[in-house]
Each structure stands twice: as C-alpha cells, then as structure tokens.
Design a protein around this nucleic acid. Structure first.
Length: 288
DNA sequence: GTTCGCGCAATGATTACGTCA
DNA sequence: TGTGACGTAATCATTGCGCGA
C-alpha cells in the first residue's frame, strides 16, 4: 500500500509522515514512532537524497534525537538490574544473554560477521554453553525466547533514535554494550523498522480517513451552498452588488474569485465560503 | 481469593526475496 | 553476470497479560 500524493493528479499535496521531534533525519526510510507516548508527530517530507523503492509508501517517518548519546552503559555482564521483578527473574536467567542457542537450530545466516565478530560470538556462545548443554541433557529442546531487559531495550531505542540502521561497527559495538550477539541486535533493528513502518501506516491511514471525511463534508456543504446561490440568482436576475464578505481571494495567486478580469468569470457571483471553509491541507485552490 | 484455560498483543527469530555495489 | 551484504515483508514461535468461568 503506497500513498503517493501527487499534486499533479489529485490537486492535493499530501506528504505525510511522523517525526519523533522537531528535527528529522535525512534518511527517507521509515523511522521510529513506535513509542509515541514519548514523542510527538509532525509532517515531514521525504528526503530527495534517497529515492523510495517502488513499493515503499511515500509516507515517511522522520526521526530525531541527534542529541542522544549512547552514554548509558548496560553493565557488561549477564546480569542487568532493574526494578521489575519480572524482568529481574528474566535477567537472572542465562537466557537473558543469548536466545537462540537453546533452540537447537543452526542459525544459517551469519552474513555480517567479520572475523572479530565471529570471535565475539564464539565467546558469547561460550558463556552460555553450559546452559545449552544442561538443556540438552534434560532432553528439552524447547525454544526459549529472549526477553530484553529494560536497560537493553532502552539502549536499543536510544540507538534507534540516532540511526534506524546500523553499520557493522555500530552493530558490533552495540552488541558488546548490550551483551548480545550482533545478529540479535540486527534482528531487533529489523523488527523495529518493520513495526514502526506498520504502525506509521496505520496512523497515516487513520489520518487520511479523517481528511476524506472532512473533504466529503466540505464538498457536501459547498454543493448545498451552490444550489442556494443558483436559486438566489434565478430569483434575482438583475445585477446586485455582492456583499464584500462573500468575495474570496486565492491565497496563492491573490486574485479575487469571481471578479477577476479573465473570460472565465461570466458571473459576478462568487462562491465564497471562506468564512467557514476548512482546508485540511492548507493548500491554495486547485483552480488556480 | 485463587486457579485454570483461552485469546490476544508484543516481540524475538527465521525465511524468502529484492536491491545494489 | 555472479556474488555477498543488507534491506524489507511475511511469518512463526514464545511470552506475558487480561479476563471470564
């Protein structure tokens, strides 16, 4: 589903998006808005520096948070302390460090691993190897799902605010900070991007629905007004000066509607609902 | 008040496939 | 043109929570 609001075809110029703060990143990729209880929305334009893929909606989500730093450090230890007793219980579990080792599955894709990363992963695996073997001894091959601690999530969020994508170095550093595997950090970012985009789409959809309702109402009202004016014109065929309040001026070309000198204005009557017209897109009339 | 089963949302992980250098 | 890295989309699986019986 793509929202390509092309002014040339629709007369409207919708470019919708969300932003976490007043500033936006240059990236055109959809970015964070997931935790909107922390942030506010605003309309941003996609950057022309990087074209969207054909399937990508033109609605974009801007990010900010340049002032954010990765200053907060999660203790580089398998135990991360938090207030939540639930989390606490999770954290004390070896599964809070590395997840999918307990699945018994072999992770096929380790595409992003440099030699150092492979080494780091080997170390990580080392840290949990005892747990894995315990499970194997138990005969339980249940897939345990990693639950990130609050601190880990916070740091990931913080990092995501800065960059919605990570280069290998950043990924490696973050993984080290979080005591996770780089692959887990990568997956987290992938999911974060995807769910941000999904949420964004839902928000945009709601917004467009409201816009549509508003325009429908306005259209209905204008049609009614037009009929009234036509009826008035029939009832009073002689020229009557218009009340000034009914004149309308195009905000872009600054011409008075209905009284300009071109040939298209055959009638001195002007549809001028300006006093209560609401244009949700704040655009000049498409007639201009 | 407690427990159990169920539905559901959140989220980590996997897979398939597209794009690009 | 083939390949690897990296992205998204779709999906699966696990977990925790709320709720009614």
């Amino acid at each position: 589903m793509g929202f390509d609001h092309d002014a040339s075809t629709s007369g409207l110029h919708l470019v919708l998006g969300l932003s976490l703060t007043a500033t936006t990143t240059p990236s055109t990729k959809p970015q964070d808005h997931h935790h909107h209880h922390h942030h506010h929305f605003c309309v941003v334009k996609p950057s022309p520096t990087k074209p969207n893929s054909p399937n990508e909606p033109s609605l974009t989500l801007g990010l900010s948070g340049d002032s954010c730093h990765l200053a907060k450090q999660v203790p580089n230890n398998s135990k991360v302390y938090c207030e939540d007793p639930l989390d606490m219980s999770r954290q004390t579990s070896p599964h809070s460090v590395v997840s999918s080792f307990s699945t018994g599955r072999v992770v096929k894709r380790e595409r992003d691993l440099s030699f150092e990363e492979v080494e780091a992963e080997a170390e990580a695996e080392e840290r949990v190897s005892s747990r894995v073997s315990d499970e194997e001894e138990d005969g339980t091959n249940a897939r345990k799902k990693l639950r990130l601690t609050k601190e880990q999530s916070a740091l990931l969020e913080e990092s995501f605010k800065q960059h919605s994508t990570l280069n290998p170095k950043q990924k490696q550093a973050l993984a080290r900070q979080l005591n996770l595997r780089p692959r887990q950090v990568e997956v987290w970012f992938q999911n974060r991007r995807a769910r941000t985009k999904l949420k964004q789409t839902e928000v945009d959809c709601e917004f467009l629905k409201k816009c549509c309702e508003t325009l429908t109402d306005e259209n209905r009202r204008l049609k009614k007004e037009l009929q009234e004016l036509k009826a008035l014109k029939l009832a009073q065929p002689l020229y009557m000066p218009m009340p000034a309040a009914t004149l309308t001026m195009c905000p872009s070309c600054e011409r008075l509607g209905g009284v300009s000198d071109n040939a298209s204005n055959k009638s001195p009557f002007s549809m001028a609902p300006k006093t209560h017209f609401y244009n949700p897109f704040a655009n000049p009339s498409a007639a201009c």
